[in-house]
Computed example of a mutant assay.
Amino acid sequence: MSEEPLIQLEGITKTFGTGSAAFQALKGVDLTIDRGEFVAIMGPSGSGKSTTMNILGCLDTPTGGVFRFRGVEVQKLGRDQRSLLRRRYLGFVFQGFNLLARTTALENVELPLLYRGEKKSVRRDAAMHALEQVGLGPWASHTPAELSGGQQQRVAIARALATDPDVLLADEPTGNLDTERSVEIMELLVRLNGEGITVLMVTHEEEMAAFAKTIVHFRDGLVERTERGLRSAAARQEVPA
């Protein structure tokens, strides 16, 4: 018997507004994501990719259709239950880093654990481990102003990892970085994915999407097509048998 998909979207619709002002952002999206996948979501402005990511992140709810996460129908959950699911299973990385300027890297990474009510010693240990995962252990006491853009994004990724999530959702994670730093961040995401974390990423950069195992293209509120990530496929071919 095959393992149940981690995420399933079946006929997902999303309408904003009512009456003559109504706009249907999603028109029946079907998408299946297995555990351990690295999926890049692409598409022009207004294609529905960001709306889909908000639904996947339990930040918004669909108007219609079925959204299953680990077999649970998320669209039937209440606000508090969705919030618990988000805190327990999901980690978020944003284009703008969203770090607190006057606090250290370690304190920034601790924040989601603070919101969970974890003890200080537990927070410190988990945050330090997360910083070490992204190669920033020696920079734990530095503030964002003392870090490069790439290092700041690594801190943001460490913050998402601190809660030990099943899924990492990254919204344009390289959008504010130069090419060299962008490649570093993508290589980090590939490594984390190889360690078992499912990665879902929205990007408009084809070179960055190529690092994913699967690229899902959206257009006009629907999945237009899917393809394999070129760099991911090439890397697999280079691994000795």
Rank of each mutant, 00 (worst) to 15 (best):
residue 52 T to H: 09
residue 18 T to L: 13
residue 84 L to Q: 13
residue 237 Q to N: 09
residue 79 R to F: 11
residue 69 F to E: 07
residue 29 V to L: 12
residue 157 I to H: 09
residue 49 K to M: 10
residue 25 A to V: 13
residue 13 T to V: 10
residue 63 T to N: 05
residue 123 R to Y: 10
residue 125 D to A: 15
residue 143 T to K: 10
residue 41 I to E: 07
residue 33 I to C: 05
residue 200 L to N: 01
residue 103 T to H: 11
residue 111 L to H: 08
residue 210 A to I: 11
residue 96 G to C: 04
residue 224 E to R: 05
residue 201 M to L: 00
residue 167 V to Q: 08
residue 40 A to F: 00
residue 236 R to W: 05
residue 74 V to D: 02
residue 51 T to N: 03
residue 193 N to L: 13
residue 39 V to M: 05
residue 146 E to Y: 01
residue 48 G to E: 03
residue 140 A to C: 13
residue 112 P to S: 11
residue 57 G to D: 01
residue 150 G to P: 06
residue 31 L to W: 08
residue 53 M to E: 01
residue 71 G to R: 07
residue 134 V to D: 06
residue 51 T to L: 06
residue 117 G to Q: 11
residue 187 E to C: 03
residue 206 E to P: 08
residue 140 A to R: 12
residue 70 R to N: 14
residue 17 G to Y: 03
residue 156 A to I: 00
residue 167 V to K: 01
residue 141 S to Y: 08
residue 190 V to T: 13
residue 101 A to K: 08
residue 162 A to L: 04
residue 129 H to L: 14
residue 229 G to A: 05
residue 1 M to T: 13
residue 107 E to D: 15
residue 109 V to M: 08
residue 224 E to K: 11
residue 19 G to P: 12
residue 183 V to R: 09
residue 33 I to N: 01
residue 126 A to M: 07
residue 56 L to K: 01
residue 106 L to V: 06
residue 86 R to V: 15
residue 194 G to L: 06
residue 223 V to T: 04
residue 81 Q to N: 14
residue 148 S to T: 08
residue 38 F to R: 01
residue 113 L to V: 04
residue 189 L to G: 02
residue 94 F to H: 09
residue 16 F to H: 02
residue 173 P to G: 04
residue 183 V to F: 01
residue 221 G to Y: 10
residue 77 L to M: 09
residue 92 F to L: 09
residue 77 L to Q: 05
residue 43 G to F: 07
residue 59 L to F: 10
residue 192 L to Q: 02
residue 132 E to H: 12
residue 181 R to H: 15
residue 87 R to N: 11
residue 204 H to Y: 00
residue 214 T to G: 00
residue 42 M to R: 01
residue 207 E to A: 15
residue 187 E to N: 04
residue 89 Y to H: 10
residue 104 T to C: 13
residue 153 Q to G: 06
residue 88 R to L: 00
residue 82 R to Q: 14
residue 148 S to N: 11
residue 2 S to F: 14
residue 28 G to S: 15
residue 54 N to Y: 07
residue 81 Q to S: 14
residue 145 A to D: 14
residue 108 N to Y: 13
residue 175 G to R: 04
residue 61 T to V: 07
residue 114 L to C: 12
residue 160 A to N: 00
residue 179 T to Y: 05
residue 196 G to H: 05
residue 176 N to K: 09
residue 59 L to V: 00
residue 71 G to C: 02
residue 227 E to N: 01
residue 136 L to D: 05
residue 85 L to A: 06
residue 111 L to K: 08
residue 76 K to R: 15
residue 179 T to L: 05
residue 105 A to D: 13
residue 189 L to R: 03
residue 217 H to T: 13
residue 11 G to C: 12
residue 175 G to E: 00
residue 42 M to A: 08
residue 208 M to R: 07
residue 8 Q to V: 15
residue 136 L to F: 09
residue 33 I to W: 06
residue 152 Q to S: 04
residue 157 I to Q: 01
residue 27 K to A: 14
residue 7 I to T: 00
residue 169 L to Y: 01
residue 48 G to K: 07
residue 184 E to Q: 11
